[in-house]
Structure formats: C-alpha cells, structure tokens
C-alpha cells in the first residue's frame, strides 16, 4: 500500500532534498552563514568604515542636517591635538590601563592559584569571589559611587576605623584621587573574569606534571615560576590582551561615577571622544579620537589572534 503524503510533507521533502546533492549541497553552507555575514557587514563593517571616514570630514549637527559634509583632511586631528584636555586624557588613559591590567592580572592569578585546590569550602569562596563579575556593571558602579559618598559613605567610615584616614574624604570629588577611586571599582569588577580564565587554564595543566615537579623537590615559588606559569602562559597572555581591550572600552565606570571630572582629572580617551561627539556634537573630532583608539585596539587584537593561533598549533 502506498503511503499517502500531504502536499505540505511533499514540499518539505523537496525542500530538504534540494540540499542533499550536487549544487544544492555546495551552496548550502553559504546559505547558513549568509545571515550572519549580512548582519555583520551591515552593523559592523559599514559603520566602521563610516566612522573612520568621518574622522576626515566636518561632521556636526549642522552639516548632518544639510547633508553637506566637507572633506577636511587632518583638520579634526589637529583640533584634537590642540586641545589641552586631549593630552591629559591620554595620560589618564595610560595610567588607567596600566593600573587595571597589572592589578587585575596579578590578583586574578593569585586568586586562581588559591581557588585551584581541593579543600573544603572552596565552592563557597569561588561563588563569592565571582559576585563582582555577575553584578550588572551599572548597578555595581552606582553602588560604589554610593560607598564613596563624601559625607556618609561606608568607604570613608571603614578607612577611618582602620586608621588609614583621619577624616572623611571626597574620593570622587578630588582631582588627586578621582581616577584612582574609579580604578579601584574597575579592578574589583574585572578581576574575577581574569581569575576564571586562568582557573580554566590551570585545570588543563596535567596533574602528572605538577606531581613530578613536587617529587623532584621543587619549592612553591619555583614550581610556580618554572612549571605552572609556562604551562598557562598563552592563557595568561590572552587574559592580558582581553583585559586591555575591556579596560580601554570601559565607559560605565568613569561616566557614572565622575563623568571624567572633576576638571578632567578622570577623563580617558573614550569619555573625551564621547563628550566631543554627544556634548559638543562635533562628531568629526569624536571620530578622530575614536579612530586613534581603534588603531591601538587593532594592534592588541592582532597580538591576541597570533596567540590563539600559536596555541592551536601547540
């Protein structure tokens, strides 16, 4: 007896058999990646090209309105370099990146080594230490802003009780401390992710290597330096590049605590570009700063990819 099929099933069969052999089989992987490629070209590649180009045009609200933007060559860059705030923001960015990357990697590695042990209660500590990573960034930043409150903030009270300060201090309102105060929040927020990456890497180190090192009588530090670190060096480098990228792109912490102030003391290039673009509405100048940041990040990304490939080749 013939099995009866509905037209719908028939259609389904034809549709799926189209890709079974011949030309259909060859094009179907392309069909599957097509949506992703289209979206990425539309929302990443095209805006990117546009963004870089607009660094060389006079893009302001006025020219956007009339639709007539003129090519101005390097004029936007010249105007950026002539702004004294740019120099300060560059210096602040350097301080901000170095402090964040060094502290997050150092603390992240220490925590990963500490948590990579089978001792009672380790799950409890691990979950707790991941909390900063899980709390939404805006919520975390606003909480820290509240803790730094100059008149009733808990940070002041705790430091006072520990005898570190003599009186309450406006951490975010003082040009000497604002950048560092924000940096501490950023380190607090970013370290658990570094810890996770390094912990994952540590778990891949074969136990036999560690045991062999212990048997040869290697002491703690030497074991760390000669056995463990070489084993996780690629992950460590990847964590370093990722931390670098995330720090350069960390807008929320600075914007929601100080908006780059007071007196640009916590201004980084990102927030400066943002102000050029969306406070002054000089999008050309904003694009010039953003393009410079982009070049720095591309260099970092290239290193990142090289490292991944080196690792896949291992």
């Amino acid at each position: 007896m013939m099995k009866r099929t509905s037209p719908r099933q028939e259609l389904k069969k034809t549709w799926s058999s189209m890709f079974e052999t011949g030309r259909g089989a060859r094009i179907y992987p392309y069909l599957m990646v097509l949506p992703a490629v289209l979206v990425v070209v539309g929302v990443v590649v095209y805006p990117l090209v546009y963004g870089i180009l607009s660094a060389f045009y006079d893009v302001t609200l006025r020219t956007l309105g009339s639709g007539k933007m003129n090519f101005v060559g390097l004029r936007n860059f010249e105007r950026v370099f002539a702004d004294p705030v740019f120099l300060q923001a560059s210096w602040n960015t350097l301080v901000w990146v170095v402090l964040n990357v060094v502290a997050q990697l150092g603390l992240g590695l220490a925590l990963a080594l500490l948590l990579h042990r089978a001792i009672p209660g380790i799950g409890f500590f691990r979950s707790g230490i991941l909390v900063p990573w899980v709390v939404p960034s805006v919520v975390a930043v606003l909480t820290w802003r509240w803790m730094y409150d100059p008149s009733v903030g808990i940070a002041n009270e705790l430091l006072l009780r520990l005898g570190i300060i003599d009186d309450y201090h406006p951490w975010l309102g003082d040009t000497a401390t604002s950048l560092y105060a924000v940096t501490i929040e950023s380190i607090w927020k970013g370290t658990p992710f570094v810890m996770l990456l390094l912990l994952a890497a540590l778990q891949l180190v074969p136990r036999s290597i560690l045991e062999a090192a212990s048997m040869d009588g290697a002491s703690g530090w030497r074991k760390l330096w000669h056995v463990i670190l070489p084993q996780i060096r690629v992950s460590f480098a990847i964590a370093a590049v990722l931390t670098f990228i995330l720090t350069v792109n960390n807008f929320n912490a600075i914007w929601l605590m100080t908006e780059g102030g007071p007196l640009n003391s916590s201004e980084i290039l990102f927030t400066l570009a943002y102000k050029y673009g969306f406070k002054r509405f000089d999008l050309g100048m904003a694009s010039a700063v953003a393009t410079m940041l982009f070049v720095g990040l591309v260099i970092a990304t290239t290193i990142y990819l090289k490292l991944i490939q080196a690792r896949e080749g291992d």
């Binding site: 990425v40 990443v44 590649v45 095209y46 805006p47 990117l48 546009y50 963004g51 870089i52 607009s54 893009v59 956007l64 990228i245 350069v248 792109n249 807008f251 990102f270 570009a273 943002y274 673009g277 969306f278 999008l283 904003a286 694009s287 700063v289 953003a290 393009t291 940041l293 982009f294 990040l297 591309v298 970092a300 990304t301 990142y304």
Partner: peptide, 15 residues
C-alpha cells in the same frame, strides 16, 4: 568584529 571599540561605532550608528 568583536574588537571594535564601541565609541568608534557610536557615531555612525547615531548618524
């Protein structure tokens, strides 16, 4: 595509 700084895409998106 993931590595592009959001600040560079912000302006074209706005436009």
């Amino acid at each position: 595509g993931q590595m592009f700084p959001p600040v560079l895409l912000l302006i074209p998106f706005y436009v």
